[in-house]
């Protein structure tokens, strides 16, 4: 079982890889909409990337309003 800290680090690493950013350039408290400048389709892509990596389903309504990596990781953790 992953810890929340591990999940958060994996989310940050996935986002950095997906958006071709240097590993370590993203922090748990970052607002990913502002930091990554992503649109609605990229948001869905990231959701697929996360679900495929963690082997979970993360309904859109559970992440609606979530904008930072730490809270996103918490939502994922609750599904693991």
């Amino acid at each position: 079982m992953r810890t929340l800290e591990q999940t958060t680090q994996e989310v940050l690493a996935l986002a950095a890889t997906h958006f071709q950013l240097p590993v370590g350039s993203l922090a748990p408290g970052d607002d990913f909409f502002k930091k990554l400048g992503i649109d609605s389709l990229q948001t869905l892509e990231m959701l697929s990337r996360l679900e495929n990596h963690f082997g979970i389903e993360l309904p859109d309504y559970e992440v609606q309003g979530v904008s930072d990596f730490k809270t996103l990781a918490e939502r994922i953790q609750s599904r693991l």
């Binding site: 869905l44 959701l47 697929s48 679900e51 495929n52 389903e57 309904p59 859109d60 309504y61």
Partner: peptide, 10 residues
């Protein structure tokens, strides 16, 4: 009823 998006695996 949820309107949610579902991934391809599901």
């Amino acid at each position: 009823f949820t309107g949610r998006t579902m991934n391809a695996t599901r």
